[in-house]
């Protein structure tokens, strides 16, 4: 492991300063992903700024009727928080579908947003990966790509190709909920819409998010609308626990008098970011839940999907999962 220095600031200003004044420094909170990546020689921060002493672990109501999740609240504390369970059960379900109890106890909400891909080639420094080593190529493109993306990939230019997925479950629910990420940086505070927080690989696959250097996530704001009545999170994976999603679907619906009045559908395991298409969701509004055929919605969400061999099955699997998730959320199927 590389040597690194270590700082443990006790206020946000100092923490942000630390990153501004030390090139190559990184924040560390739960460390569930960063330490692994350091051991694998994928990440080599020269300074770790431990933010665990910052007062960012509260979960509290916002003035707008929503809920503010502190960046340092653990995934476990969030999933089991009574306000989350009663007002945002979709988020609770998604968090609990991820990782293992041990990891959720360590992992923080802020850190969850920065989970890096589980692409085998990203982790194995003796294979090419444009995300890890820009310009080295993409091993997955013609390799073992069973867990890789089918939507929004970058596969034309060998030097920027990337078909990695974002691995988080929590983020899929946050995307569906239209969460807002609050950050503090050298230029002060700002907010980022969740849909804009993660990015597609494009020509810069090494960038996972739109966060600027030195910015620190302080909280995630959930809007008032939490879909507590009609929701579901389906996660399909190779085993029942401690496995990343091959495909996951978060659905939140509002239904009035058997008619859908609002709909959110976010997909996980299929792209470099949680995948949403608001224009397709809008097609559900006004539809009768008992008469709507959800299959065309699934088709529309997967429009343009492309398989790379081992992962081609995900296209059909995602469509089936979307249909089932909509049925479950609409209570046409048991939640299980």
């Amino acid at each position: 492991m590389n040597s690194f220095s270590y700082a443990r600031p006790s206020d946000i200003g100092t923490a942000v300063d630390e990153l501004a004044t030390h090139e190559g420094a990184k924040f560390i909170a739960g460390g569930t992903n960063l330490l692994d990546l350091m051991k694998e020689n994928v990440e080599h921060p020269n300074r770790l700024v431990d933010i665990n002493r910052l007062a960012l672990s509260t979960i509290e109501d916002t003035e707008e009727g929503g809920l503010r999740l502190g960046a340092l609240a653990t995934n476990a504390d969030t999933a089991y928080h009574s306000a989350v369970q009663s007002r945002y059960p979709l988020l609770s379900q998604a968090i609990l579908a991820g990782a293992s109890a041990q990891l959720r106890n360590m992992a923080t909400n802020g850190g969850n947003l920065f989970q890096r891909t589980r692409c085998y080639y990203f982790y194995d420094t003796q294979t090419p990966c444009n995300k890890r080593e820009p310009g080295s190529g993409c091993g997955a493109l013609n390799g073992f790509n069973r867990i890789h993306a089918i939507l929004g990939t970058s596969d034309q230019n060998p030097e920027t190709a990337c078909i990695a997925t974002h691995p988080s479950d929590m983020c899929v629910a946050l995307a569906a909920l239209d969460a807002v990420v609050r950050v503090t940086g050298p230029m002060g505070e700002r907010t980022i819409r969740f849909a804009d927080f993660h990015r597609l690989p494009g020509h810069e696959p090494w960038l996972d998010t739109t966060i600027q250097p030195g910015e620190l996530v302080t909280a995630i704001d959930l809007p008032a609308k939490g879909f507590p009545e009609y929701f579901t999170y389906i996660k399909l994976r190779d085993r029942q626990s401690y496995a990343f999603a091959l495909v996951s679907v978060a659905v939140g619906l509002e239904i009035d008098n058997n008619r859908i009045t609002d709909a959110r559908i976010a997909l996980g395991g299929v792209a470099h970011k949680p995948w949403r298409k608001p224009e397709v969701e809008a097609r559900l509004v006004g539809q009768s839940i008992s008469e709507t055929d959800f299959a065309p919605i699934a088709e529309a969400l997967l429009e343009g999907a492309k398989g790379y061999g081992h992962n081609t099955f995900k296209i059909e699997l995602a469509k089936r999962a979307i249909v089932r998730a909509l049925q479950r959320a609409a209570k046409l199927e048991p939640q299980v």
Binding site: Y120, D124, G143, F144, R239, Y242, A243
Partner: peptide, 18 residues
């Protein structure tokens, strides 16, 4: 799972070797 491009087992950890 071996990637025959590289002749190398790729899921060489307990997160990915299930």
């Amino acid at each position: 799972v071996m990637d025959h491009q590289f002749g190398r087992f790729m899921n060489h950890n307990l997160a990915e070797y299930h």
